[in-house]
Design a protein around this nucleic acid. Structure first.
Lengths: 211, 211, 211, 211
DNA sequence: AATGAATGAGACTTCATTCAT
DNA sequence: TATGAATGAAGTCTCATTCAT
């Protein structure tokens, strides 16, 4: 991390910043914003407390940046799922069902849940996080999905309808029941139940939107 | 201790407890669990700090009881909406649409949103709240809705399907988009948008479930 | 405790006061002055908190009166031991040894220890308690012992010496080692060790004071 | 962190810790454990309240460490007195009397009294302090004294006897009367009375133990 | 006379944040 | 730049004591 003269390299600085942000999200996700303390973040990151302040200012900023970074990470994974939509060549039902299953899985994963939990929790103190995070996660997903659904409409495989609304509803049919059944992540959903949710959502969606 | 004096005292005690619980929910909803402080709860309730402790023990218990009480309040209002389902005599579409509109309204109201926000926020520290609150609010609503949908199936107005799943989906189609559009309550939804959400949800639901 | 008209009798009042004082000493002895709380005293006494205040004013006064009462109780038992000194008719060694044994036993008993502990503990806050309590316990004992030793001097069985000093020393030879060995009451002394202490004290005393 | 800066820092830390411990003993001795408050300790030590917590954890640990440190200090002074026993070359009576006088002086000094008072006071809450403190003060003194008395026995200047018991008794003859006369430190003993006590103790001891 | 309820004051402890090295 | 140490501010909770019945 240091060059021959002992000065920190740019790379080293960045690594340390990443380590801090990652540690911060870890701690915030476990404890929540207020109960989390900077000391623990520093400890998990393997640096001293003032170093956290040097890199990221105060706790609020640390939180914002950590959420941002986490949202980016989650988004990357989400987008990989959306890529699958490209392969909707064969049977519509089967294809959508497969994508749906992947999406519930992702949305029920710890990173997504933690992100969602924290955004909900701190919406009062950090209202801008809703935009910041949702835009990169659920919003981005809905957008990509809408794009694809529009395509399917044009291809005559779905009836004409506002693709944004359709996408929103499809996602709601997935995440709503998943959150309810998992009791907000308290109960781990068995794969079968997850698949059932995906199936039911797809079924309802196709019935309502098939051409 | 007896009769008029006794009843007055007991009533006074209960009133004070209610005042504290109401104040507590108010403060917790505004600040979140950790940042809320008992002093403010006491102030809002118009009592001295130790009185809060006398009545409700410690901060954790105060929180739990306040959430419970708030959930009861919200539930009562929710159930009034569900009553409307009885009047689904005429046009199915119109009837469901009307009920849907009322339900999004209720779910987007401050009490509901605050409750949901707090449950999400503190699910890590108070996992039992999910059951406690959801059972009285969303769960109760879904149940009542399921009952009614089952009836409609028997009457041949909806196709045969698991009414629990149908209810869950109907609610998801309402609350999912509402949460997304209102940015978790950050943005106040105009009545027109709320109605549009209700309409879209009803439309999709009827298409998927009509007999 | 109440007469036919329901008024508390004088006897009832006194009983209640005694109950409170006894409970108070019990609690103070267990917890110490500051950590003891009036609520527990009231509970042990089986009365309500304000009743304690009605009868005994504030916590300080409650403590003083409780100590006084406990000192009286301990004194009574001590004096019974001193009575034994009258029977010092036969062998001096044996007689003194017997009395010594009884005295260490008494001094190591819980009431005596608690009293001593509390006086030591609160000598800073309640300096007058030293006089008040010591006068009735150790002081009274020393005095009685001195009287008896003076008699033995006159009878020519002990050499001439200040009987007050002699008594003081005899008691010190008993209680000093007992306190040290029992680690201030932390360790329960077996009867054999108690007897050994009494024997050693008597032996030294007789060697030093025999005529 | 290295060399001069390092040593200075470490030394500074230690100094601060010592200052806190010393201040703590001061405050505890004046007020007792429970009434003492950490704020005053911090003030007396000239540091901020959290610094006390940084260095010593909580109040209980602060108390224990302060007692330990104070016991060490007292012990050092006690042992200097015991050293005097080496010079028991001339007249036994005179030599012992001299040592006795020094010992009562030490035992009646504020540090000793405060230590004793606190141990007595808190034996209920901190039972391990008895061992911890007594071992370093009275116990250590008794041991050293016993060693010396054993030597005197071997030299034929004292009769054969258990030196531990003899030492214990000698100390009891000194401290018992001193505590009684000073009313547990409430009354300041004039030098003459202190000397009289030392003389009387020595006299009795020599009569009982001289060869 | 006795009690359920209420409160003012204060204690311990934690934590975000800043110095000084 | 990174850190060990220090601190101001704040929060939970307890308790002696007093009202009102």
């Amino acid at each position: 991390m240091t060059d021959s003269a002992g000065r920190a390299t740019a790379r080293g600085r960045i690594d340390k910043r990443q380590a801090i942000l990652s540690a911060a999200f870890d701690v915030f996700a476990r404890r929540g914003y207020a109960p989390a303390n900077v000391a623990e973040v520093a400890e998990v990151a393997g640096v001293a407390k003032p170093t956290v302040y040097n890199h990221l200012g105060d706790k609020e900023n640390l939180f914002r940046r950590a959420m941002e970074a986490a949202a980016d990470t989650v988004m990357e994974r989400n987008l990989r799922d959306v890529e699958r939509l490209r392969t909707l060549e064969g049977d519509l039902r089967a294809g959508l069902g497969d994508v749906a299953y992947r999406m519930v899985q992702t949305c029920c994963g710890e990173p997504s849940r933690a992100l969602r939990r924290l955004v909900h929790a701190e919406v009062g103190q950090f209202p801008e996080l809703v935009e910041l995070v949702q835009a990169r996660t659920a919003g981005r997903l809905a957008e990509a999905l809408a794009d694809r659904l529009a395509r399917l409409s044009l291809e005559g495989r779905l009836r004409a309808a506002d693709p944004a609304v359709a996408a929103e509803q499809f996602l709601s049919l997935l995440t709503g029941p998943a959150e309810a059944r998992s009791r907000l992540g308290t109960r781990k959903l068995p794969a079968a139940e997850l698949r059932a949710i995906a199936e039911a959502a797809t079924d309802t969606f196709v019935r309502a939107y098939a051409a």
